[in-house]
Design a binder for these strands. Structure first.
Lengths: 137, 137
DNA sequence: AAAATTTTGCAACTTTGTTGCAAACTCTTA
DNA sequence: TAAGAGTTTGCAACAAAGTTGCAAAATTTT
């Protein structure tokens, strides 16, 4: 467990620090999207708020996690699949947010559908967020 | 111009006030998504920050505007088509955010594609946000 | 094990959003 | 069209979310 986080940090040329290891492990353990706030709550007083912000930012830059667009103004992060490389995400999967338990899933099995845009619009990234009732609710 | 805003407010049983009229007109004039911050900047000192927040909230509740999910932590609002009724949005269109000029479009002509979910997931709302280069960039 | 580099925590600050309440405005209806 | 009822606004005060600079602590390099 701890090993995986270590490996990932190393592979991404990041110094291995307690905060990075533990925050990354959190993502592996929970296996669903987390907000900054969740992490602060779970880790308690262990890390400074600023450290969490900076850690998340670093992970996003390295392609370890990605943000999930939400209609409310919350910022959720979830693990990227291995193919993501620095500065270039290929999250060809959709997100599902449960309206009841508000768990956020990355549905890896479901690929993003084709979208036909009007003339002149060039797509670079297509985000699909489905909300509704999840399998546990 | 001023008449349209007036009509819409009346139709939604809202008192017609300067702030509501002018903020609604802004949406009609610009014809693309606006953030709270844009409105504050454009209207200058005219209205209190709190009033703008409350006005946007009211418009969302009445189905006059809707929020657009974004991956950064910004909240954008855009006009709803007429079919939207109170508390119940039917925005069966996709959103496009330009990475260059960051204009946000509601692409009414493009309908939301079908998405097949894994067993146990029941969709209620599907949001599609495409980002890339818009027709003017 | 020391030097070089990176990261952390703190303090201070900015931005964003919320709440309660009195004053101002809008709507109603007589 | 003026008075009263009801709604909305602006202010103040606050809460939450996010940022920046910098010295101290930790990690990595040699």
């Amino acid at each position: 467990m701890s090993n995986l986080a270590y490996e990932v940090l190393k592979r991404n040329q990041l110094s291995v620090t307690e905060s990075r290891k533990q925050i990354l492990e959190l993502f592996y353990e929970r296996n669903n999207a987390l907000e900054h706030n969740d992490i602060e709550r779970i880790t308690g007083e262990k890390f400074d708020r600023v450290t969490i912000y900076r850690t998340l930012q670093t992970f996003v830059e390295k392609g370890i996690i990605h943000t999930i667009p939400t209609a409310d103004n919350s910022v959720r992060y979830a693990l990227c699949k291995d193919e993501c490389t620095e500065g270039h995400h290929h999250d060809n999967h959709i997100h599902f947010i449960c309206n009841q338990c508000s768990t956020t899933y990355c549905l890896e099995a479901v690929s993003v559908p084709e979208v036909l845009l009007p003339k002149g619009f060039q797509p670079q990234l297509i985000e699909v967020v489905v909300s509704g009732k999840c399998k546990n609710c």
